[in-house]
């Protein structure tokens, strides 16, 4: 195997969760990978292992990935017990092997939550997030309805805060990191974005109530202020959004009939 910088690469042991399908019990399987360059990404390291498995006629390890630049939210690995691994503010695909050393043993599991059933190996079903969006994560404005964009003024700081919340990529790391598998940070990010903007006002109460109810119906747990979600979020979304969600929720209970 070539290692582009000519130096000797790392030899690692991977313990990877293998599960044939949603009904299979699954378990950890150990693999050795050799001569891994420090400059490749974590997913490229898995690519190397997979190419070796496929060439031998064995089933490759399934894992979700797509853009490989930290924005699509598809990749989702629990690496040594940390959602997206040990880098702060980074997705799995942004993690590079320079963060590991020769001889390391790495445990790779799927994001675990009752609401995210395993599809195969490291792939989980996150469609619960889509259903929460369907309940109220939108502004009801049909195509063609809008007036001139500058007729809606949004103060700079509000726009920046809304953008902070809106940068959620829907990866589910917050759920995987939470001991209760709560989706509060995900819901809070969406509710906050719209609560901060004038465009979100007409449906402000209806939205928070509907999204909260949908979240509960999907089987996510409750928030007990562990703050693990903020620590795991690859986009640095703050728990202060959860405080805003709670305020919006209480306010909506009072205001709506």
């Amino acid at each position: 195997m070539d290692n582009h910088d000519g130096g000797k690469g790392m030899n690692l042991t991977l313990k990877v969760w293998r599960q044939k399908d949603s009904r299979d019990r699954g378990g950890l399987v150990a693999y050795k990978v050799e001569n891994i360059s420090a400059d490749i990404s974590f997913l490229e390291m898995l690519d190397i292992l997979n190419e070796q498995l496929v060439a031998k006629g064995e089933d490759a390890i399934s894992f979700d990935h797509d853009c490989r630049e930290g924005i699509c939210g598809m990749c989702a690995l629990m690496i040594d017990g940390q959602a997206h691994g040990k880098d702060k503010d980074a997705t799995t695909c942004q993690l590079h092997m320079r963060r590991y050393k020769d001889g390391d043993v790495i445990v790779i599991e799927p994001f675990r939550a009752k609401a995210f059933p395993v599809v195969k190996d490291l792939v989980v079903d996150r469609s619960a997030f889509d259903r929460i969006q369907q309940a109220g994560g939108f502004v009801s404005v049909n195509t063609g309805n809008a007036g001139d964009a500058n007729n809606i003024l949004v103060p700079h700081d509000k726009a920046e805060k809304a953008m902070d919340a809106a940068s959620c990529i829907g990866c589910g790391a917050c759920v995987a990191a939470c001991p209760n598998a709560s989706a509060m940070l995900f819901v809070a990010a969406k509710v906050s974005q719209y609560a901060l903007l004038p465009q979100g006002q007409p449906e402000r109460e209806r939205r928070v109530l509907a999204m909260r109810a949908a979240m509960d119906a999907e089987g996510f747990g409750h928030c007990t202020n562990e703050y693990e979600c903020e620590a795991a979020c690859p986009k640095g979304i703050k728990v202060s959004n959860i405080a805003r969600l709670n305020r919006e929720f209480v306010r909506a209970m009072v205001v709506s009939e």
């Binding site: 502004v139 964009a149 809606i152 103060p155 700079h156």
Partner: peptide, 22 residues
């Protein structure tokens, strides 16, 4: 131009000036 209007109405958090314009 209609695209910008539509997206702004949807709550897309475009960058803003201090006066609130795009």
């Amino acid at each position: 131009n209609s695209i910008i209007d539509q997206c702004a109405a949807q709550g897309v958090p475009f960058a803003r000036e201090y006066g609130g314009t795009l």
